[in-house]
Design a protein around this nucleic acid. Sequence first.
RNA 1: GCCCCGGUAGCUCAGUAGGAUAGAGCAACCGCCUCCUAAGCGGUAGGUCGCAGGUUCGAAUCCUGCCCGGGGCACCA
Length: 586
Amino acid sequence: MKEKLRSLVARAVDQLGRDGTLPADTQVEIQVERARDKGHGDYAVNTAMVLAKQAGMKPRELAERLVAALPDDPGVAGITIAGPGFINFEITQEAAYAAVRDALAEGAAYGRSKLGAGQRINLEFVSANPTGPLHVGHGRGAAFGGALASLLAAAGYDVHREYYVNDAGRQMDILATSVWLRYLEHQGESLRLPDNAYRGDYVRGIARKLAGEKGDTLLQPAEVVMAELPLDGSEGGDKEEYIDTLVTRCKTLLGPEAFAGVFQLALDTVLEDIRDDLAAFGVTYDEWFSERSLTDTGAVERALERLDEAGHLYEADGAVWFRSSAFGDEKDRVVRRDNGATTYFASDIAYHLDKLERGYGHCIDVWGADHHGYVPRVHAALRALDRDPEQLDIRLVQFAILYRGSERMPMSTRSGQFVTLRELREDVGADAARFFYVMRKPEQHLDFDLELAKSESSDNPVYYIQYAHARICSVLVQMREKGLSHDPDNGDRHLTRLTESHETELVSAIGRYPELIELAARAREPHQLAHYLRELASHVHTYYNAHQFLVEDPDLRDARLNLVLAARQVIRNGLGLLGVSAPEAM
RNA sequence: GCCCCGGUAGCUCAGUAGGAUAGAGCAACCGCCUCCUAAGCGGUAGGUCGCAGGUUCGAAUCCUGCCCGGGGCACCA
């Protein structure tokens, strides 16, 4: 309907261009909006106000000319000019009921759009280091990314969900070392855990697994392992230097092969945990992309060569630097350290180049807000490689802070006292967790109230929406118990019986769903869907309280059932995109 | 110091590429279950949209400056 109105107005503008009211080559983006106020009809167009200046006449006057030039359309019931020069359209009941018809006919496909036209999008999200279980901060990225992926897919994009696995580098070495130290403990050695070691319980778990597989073959006396180390941070030394020394010693004592074994066991265990965790959260991936593979295949070296050939690399202080400041970054960045190893940033350049070369014209990265300083350098790298930085859309997601009542929950992976995503799921349930995470726009800090998420009350928006769905299901159960049946075709023939204000509003809300999918997808804002669903549920509850659906009159009854079943379909579809279930009963 | 995000009702937040009288939920107060699940509904009350300028037919929305809160500024990942 929105599109139809747009084309009607476009034709009117052309017409005025031909008769000289407007400049002949007038170009304007015609904005058709849902009227916020019922008194303003169903749709509003502001074109007259936008073009008033060019036309050299008052907005209302131009609006009148436009209206006069509008072609007739059977879906339009009335046109009025209001306010400063809005053209308000009222659509016919028949056109409005089409939403109910479509929702029932299209079912799960209702709301799907061709907006994306099959364009391939690579959506990378979570990508947490596999150094431990996901915590609640990652949960927001998972819920947001998962919902955005579904939303974009519903809007007609070909979405590829990807997790970038940081399976190389220092942090993973530290994890492997931490596992080995716990293993030594498990074998009866007593030693002091470094400040910077990973100390969560899961490390002990991996250590036990290691002991189970390797027995005491990896055992070394604690005195040897801990001999002549520098001072640790808490001892007045440098904790980074301390842990690095220990990592090096670990590699030496174990030998490259055994160390690689410990490393791999730690990686596989943690990654499997993450994968299971996300799957239970309703988030799945098309690809788990290994950072290490970029080094193994030489992709990192190739990327650096390309930068070098283009003259964007230079040496200083024994390291190789990328001249990112020439491409909008605040300073240059190291891509190869003085010890010869490439940096994480170098891998990231290769990774993003790889994504583009795999044929994704558009890439979306979902990052934690703490990585925002990293954005300019990645864009700089793409620019330096003659790629359009617009192709990489980086969405930053702010922190989620957990509260239990008024108590703020602490979080720190290193100390091991974080609240894991798994714990959160088990506490409040996956449905509530996913909804709460996407309810707020991503730029907004999220106060996640555990008590509220768990409460089975009207305070809780998840249950409110799910309840609307369950109530409709329950009506059908009641219907059968009363020995009645529903004839959808008959209902369809009598949709015009739905004239109550509660009914027309619900019809209108259902009709808005496809528009909302496009809007939310375009803006990459799943929270719009969450808010819409709350509104839709509100219409359902209001209607439910105001009117009986299972009335005597079979025509009216069938029509009402068509309406609420259409609403149920939209709730189901919408919740599905957010990864929230739509229970039949509660 | 520089960069990013936020500042809208007592609280938590929406506000759809600047649009008509700024909206929800919670909390507060008043009502509604012999009737399809009260995990619900109706009503009342609640606002200098952080502050000051600017842009224009029109600004919570765009621009500039300032104030407050959160985060980030590694040869870590």
